[in-house]
Design a protein around this nucleic acid. Structure first.
Lengths: 108, 108
DNA sequence: TTATTTGCTACAAATAATGTAGCACAAAGG
DNA sequence: CCTTTGTGCTACATTATTTGTAGCAAATAA
C-alpha cells in the first residue's frame, strides 16, 4: 500500500511544492479552499457548498488544511488563514485562466 | 455513492473552474502536470518520477488529462499541450509561493 | 531470434470516500 | 426549566478508488 503522504510526509521529501501538490491533490481540498475565498463558513454551510460532501470527508480534509495553516476556525466558522488567502489568490488566477481554456477545449 | 465527476461532468456544472478543481483534485493529476513541466517523459519514466505510482492509476489519470487537452502523447512520450504548459506556469508560481509558506509553516 | 522498451490491462487486495444517523455542547426562546 | 436550533463533529457499514504485482502485444534493435 501507500499511506497518506500528508500524514507521513513520506513522498513529500521536504520539498514544499511536493507537500503542496500532495495536499491539493486530495479530494475536496482545493474545493474547500475555493469556497472559502470570500467568506467564512460554518461546517454545514461549507458542506453544502461542496456538493454536500460527507461530514467525514470534510472533517478529515479540514483537519489537514488546518494543520498546514491554510484554514483556521473561530466563532464565525472556518476560513482562510493568511496563507490560505494567498493560495486562494492563486486559485483565482487559475479561475481566470480556466475560462479561456474551457472556451476552447470544453465542448465549446 | 458519488461517481467520478470528471466523467459525468456532474458537479462541475459547466463552470470551468469547477472542472479544473475536479481534475486537479484527483490523485496524481497535479503531480503529473508538474513532472512534465520541462521535458517529455515516457510512461515508465513518468511513473518513476511520480513515486512509482501504479500503472493503473497513471494510465487512468493520463487518459483524463489527455481528454482535457492538458497532456498529449507522441513519439517522445507524454508531455504538456499548449494548455498544459500554461497550467504548468501556474504551478511554477505555486512552487515559488510554497517555499515561503513552507519556511514559516512546515517544521521551520 | 532474442532482448529491450514501449504503453498499457487484469485483478485481487488495500485504502479512502460516502451516506446516514446521531451525539455533545452552546445559545436562544419561551 | 425545557425545548428548539445550530454548531462541530464521530460511528459505521457500504461503495468507490487506488494500489501492487504480473504480464501482454507491438515496436524497435541487436
Amino acid at each position: 500500500m501507500k499511506k497518506n503522504t500528508i500524514e507521513t510526509g513520506e513522498s513529500s521529501s521536504g520539498r514544499p511544492i511536493m507537500v503542496l501538490l500532495d495536499v491539493m491533490g486530495q479530494r475536496w481540498a482545493l474545493r474547500i479552499l475555493w469556497e472559502l475565498r470570500d467568506a467564512r463558513l460554518t461546517f454545514r454551510d461549507l458542506q453544502k457548498r461542496c456538493d454536500d460532501v460527507s461530514p467525514t470527508s470534510l472533517n478529515t480534509r479540514l483537519k489537514e488544511l488546518r494543520a498546514l495553516e491554510l484554514v483556521d476556525h473561530n466563532e464565525q466558522g472556518f476560513g482562510h488563514t493568511k496563507w490560505g488567502r494567498e493560495l486562494g489568490e492563486h486559485l483565482l488566477g487559475l479561475s481566470k485562466w480556466s475560462a479561456q481554456w474551457a472556451e476552447e477545449v470544453l465542448k465549446g
